[in-house]
Amino acid sequence: MQGVTYSYQGATAPAVTGVDLEVNPGEWLALVGANGSGKSTLAKICNALQIPTQGVCRVMGLDSSDPANTGEIRRNVALVFQNPEDQIVASIVEEDVAFGPENLGLPSGEIQIRVDRALELTGLLEYRGRGSSSLSGGQKQRLALAGALAMSPCALVLDESTSMLDPEGRESFLGCIGELNAQGMTIVQITHRMEEAVRAGRIAVMERGRVVWDGAPELFFGGEYLRWGFEEPLEFALHRELLARGILPGATLPVAEDMLRSLCL
């Protein structure tokens, strides 16, 4: 992968307006914004599900508006949506994971290898022969993730993928994502919850269809997020106050364990 360059300028559609954004290989970008700020539209543009009405979206140099590139783009940028129920196609776990590679027309040996790897990465290997409807919410969402991984993508776009999960499911899902990112997977994570964005390496804020802020998490969590009207979790408030009083060093993330470690006690 040479670089996911993504630029999208001046759409007539009000959902997303004149967005310039470049996501680099191996990066973890959190795209945050309120409901209806155009985040989901942007996700679909990344996957060539929607074609920019103006401007261009390039994935690894491929222009998404060219129908000949659609297949290549979808193979490289995989999407995981909000509701796992709406993404699972087959009744059996491994058959669902195989759905994507089957669409690519791969030979069955290759599909088998990919399914095994995707199931292993998502910790679902032992469930391979089980019915997909018997899984818990968190497991279902990891199944959807496995389905995306089986495409062997270079980048993953997560569109509010954790919003319907319970805390345990959310933790295990984000744990998976963290490991994938450590192995070099590019992550674009769309969320409206501050505490989910803390693991990202870069934050972009969307408001009314525009990217209004783009920068490092240290800067963002240092108080910048308040400017954009995000709800402040309690530990974030504590973090901000401690920073302001000079009790915490600047590079600390607003995570309980991180803050404890940085405290000179």
């Binding site: 319970d166 805390p167 345990e168 530990e235 995570v255 309980a256 364990e257 405290l263």
Partner: peptide, 21 residues
């Protein structure tokens, strides 16, 4: 308890207890 995560602020306070606060 399985599946219930302590809220971050409570985790922080629990950590402070270990440090004598």
């Amino acid at each position: 308890v399985q599946g219930l995560l302590m809220p971050p602020l409570a985790r922080f306070i629990a950590g402070l207890r270990e440090r004598g606060i």
